[in-house]
C-alpha cells in the first residue's frame, strides 16, 4: 500500500528525467573538498551529513559553495558509479549544472529552503517534471 504526499513547485526548473530515491539533506556543499572522490562519502562536518554516502541518493542542498572544479568531481563520481540520482537546490549554480548536464543525472533548481525543510533524511522521494514546474512526492510504503 502506497501513501504519498506531493508538493508542486511551479517556479522550479528541472533538467534530466523523472527519478526516485532516498533523500540526503545538506546544509552546504562543494563537490571539491567536501566529498571523498574515491568513495563518494561526505567528509566535511559543516555539511550536516558527514560520513554519509551520496551514491544513488537525492541530494537536497541548501547552498553550494567554493571551487569551480566541482563539476569535474561530480563527473568523476558518475564515471565511477558513485553519483547521486538527483540534486535538488534553490539557487542554480553554473558549476553544478555543468556536472549534472555532463553526467546526465537529474537536477531540480529554484526549490526553496522552506520546501526542503518539509523533507526528512532517508524519506523516499519521487521527482516528476509536470507541465508547470516540478512535483516532488514523499512516498510512504
Amino acid at each position: 500500500m502506497h501513501d504519498e504526499h506531493c508538493l508542486t513547485i511551479p517556479t522550479a526548473k528541472m533538467v534530466g528525467y523523472s527519478t526516485e530515491g532516498k533523500a540526503l539533506k545538506l546544509e552546504a556543499l562543494s563537490f571539491l573538498g567536501d566529498i571523498d572522490g574515491e568513495t563518494g562519502m561526505i567528509i566535511s562536518e559543516d555539511t550536516g551529513a558527514k560520513n554519509c554516502y551520496i551514491k544513488d541518493k537525492i541530494l537536497l542542498v541548501k547552498r553550494f559553495r567554493g571551487s569551480t572544479v566541482g563539476a569535474y568531481v561530480l563527473y568523476s563520481l558518475c564515471k565511477n558509479g558513485l553519483a547521486p540520482k538527483a540534486i535538488v537546490t534553490d539557487d542554480p549554480d553554473p558549476v553544478i549544472i555543468a556536472g549534472i548536464v555532463l553526467c546526465n543525472i537529474t537536477g531540480v533548481f529554484k526549490v526553496s529552503k522552506t520546501v526542503i525543510e518539509q523533507i526528512r533524511n532517508e524519506d523516499k522521494i519521487r521527482i516528476e517534471s509536470i507541465e508547470n514546474g516540478v512535483k516532488i512526492c514523499v512516498v510512504k510504503e
Binding site: 569551480t68 572544479v69 566541482g70 563539476a71 569535474y72 563527473y75 549554480d93 553554473p94 558549476v95 555543468a98 556536472g99 555532463l102
Partner: peptide, 21 residues
C-alpha cells in the same frame, strides 16, 4: 559567471556562453 572547469573549456571551444546571471 562563475563557470566550472568544464563549462569554461566548452566556452573556449565555441567562443560563446549563455546570456544569464
Amino acid at each position: 559567471n562563475r563557470e566550472s572547469g568544464i563549462s569554461s573549456l566548452m566556452a573556449s571551444i565555441i567562443g560563446k556562453t549563455y546570456y544569464a546571471g
